[in-house]
Design a protein around this nucleic acid. Structure first.
Lengths: 124, 124
DNA sequence: AGCACGTTCACGTGGCGTGAGGGTCC
DNA sequence: AGGACCCTCACGCCACGTGAACGTGC
């Protein structure tokens, strides 16, 4: 599965996979929308991730009707939104954990009022 | 300050305030980007909020180069992002409050181990 | 009665996709 | 040596802004 994610394609293949004209891919690179690697001989190499990104751009332009400035902006905003939502989820989990931790700490405190039983209760 | 927020403008004035052509404003309304009120005689009335929105659209199109589909999408995404960030802030505050509440509840529980003092400690 | 509003249509410009021409690499 | 890559230029189409024409409201 590692090797599959590292498959690379020359521009004609990548264009076919994304359903686009090869020249279009060159324009997209020029505008900074995709950054394929290059061989020593300057040939573009598109990864699966690059192709996926191309398909996303394809959707944004043809279905939604964005121009390239819009694609750039929307991709950036969607990244931000996704990261904000991830932070939200993480914070929620953290909140539950912290509250549980507070409960646990008080339970430890409580046993101090019954010193005779403390040793047995305290193990783990 | 209440009345200032309810100022309204006919299309020529609103267009001037936003630095746009009146016809452009009609197109934007047709595309759903702004929704000015109407008089009984069908004349458009733009509020300060409408004008502000027009200025924002102006920035997105002229400075950033979005087309109208992009403006619509970006405005929507920015709304979502803002609401996600607000939720994040609220959740943070709520988290602090909840943890404080847990602490307080345990402090009440603790006094139960000293029934003689409980009545006085319990008030409030 | 006149001016600014309403709508619809037409034109110009610019962004974007597509193709051709010519050079280079495998 | 041939085919696919590289780049640049040119053409065509469509979106958008702007203006004109014509009717309506204040």
């Amino acid at each position: 599965m590692r090797s599959r994610n590292h498959a690379v394609y020359v521009i004609s293949v990548a264009a076919e996979l994304a359903g686009m004209h090869p020249q279009t891919l060159r324009i997209y690179e020029q505008k900074g929308l995709v950054q394929p690697k290059r061989t020593a001989g300057n040939t573009r190499l598109y990864s699966d991730l690059d192709v996926e990104r191309l398909r996303l751009i394809q959707r944004l332009t043809s279905e939604i009707g964005l121009n390239l400035a819009g694609v750039e902006r929307v991709l950036h905003l969607e990244d931000e939104l996704q990261s904000a939502r991830r932070r939200l989820d993480r914070l929620e989990a953290e909140m539950r954990a912290t509250i549980a931790e507070v409960h646990r700490s008080y339970r430890r405190d409580l046993v101090l009022y019954r010193p005779a039983q403390a040793p047995t209760l305290r193990r783990q």
